[in-house]
Simulated assay, not measured.
Amino acid sequence: MTEDKSPLPQALEVPASDQLLDSILEKAATAAQRTVEQFAKLASLARAIEQCNSSPARRAKLLFAFEEIAASAEANARLDAEFFQGLRNGQILKRELRRAHYEHVEADADSEVTILAPSTMTRH
């Protein structure tokens, strides 16, 4: 049995700009989910530290874990903020749209053949 690999009709193709927006939204959703998970860990640790009636060594370990998660969350948030600020400024968006445009232009150019020959007429 052979599989039909004919291209999608143009009406069904997703424009490059829609693909880019989907990618941006996916990145935003991933970043938000990571932030939610990190804050949930921080909240859990804060409750554990607050209710901790154990040794100072155990409390120090919990505080160290809290600090590690907070530092990681801060670094991730900073990277996400820089990424989305770049999008806002149009740097990444322009670059991606330009790349998609050139890929489209190159694909069109590959489908057509143009022959250039030097002119035999000279002007004096």
Rank of each mutant, 00 (worst) to 15 (best):
E3S: 08
E3T: 15
D4T: 14
K5W: 09
K5M: 11
K5E: 09
K5H: 10
P7M: 06
P7L: 07
P7G: 07
P9Q: 12
P9I: 13
P9A: 14
L12W: 03
D18S: 13
Q19E: 15
L21G: 00
S23M: 08
I24H: 06
L25W: 05
L25V: 02
E26M: 05
E26Q: 10
K27F: 13
K27Q: 10
A28H: 06
A28K: 06
A28M: 02
T30N: 12
A31W: 00
A32S: 05
A32P: 00
Q33S: 11
V36C: 01
Q38D: 14
Q38W: 02
Q38T: 04
F39D: 01
K41E: 11
K41Y: 08
L42I: 06
S44C: 05
S44W: 00
L45A: 04
L45T: 01
R47D: 10
A48H: 04
E50F: 05
E50D: 06
S54T: 09
S54D: 14
S55F: 01
S55C: 05
R58I: 05
A60M: 02
K61T: 00
L63C: 01
L63W: 01
A65N: 02
A65S: 02
F66K: 06
E67H: 02
A70F: 04
A71T: 08
A71L: 06
S72K: 05
A73W: 04
A73F: 03
A73L: 01
E74A: 11
N76T: 08
D80F: 00
F83V: 02
F83H: 15
L87C: 14
R88W: 09
N89F: 03
N89I: 01
I92E: 03
L93K: 10
L93T: 15
L93N: 08
L93M: 13
L93W: 02
K94P: 00
K94T: 15
E96P: 02
E96S: 11
L97A: 14
L97R: 15
A100D: 06
H101A: 11
Y102T: 12
Y102D: 11
Y102H: 13
Y102C: 04
E103D: 04
H104T: 12
V105H: 03
V105F: 08
E106N: 10
E106D: 05
D108Y: 00
A109K: 10
S111W: 04
E112M: 14
E112N: 04
L116S: 15
L116E: 15
P118Q: 10
P118M: 07
P118L: 03
M121E: 15
M121F: 13
T122V: 13
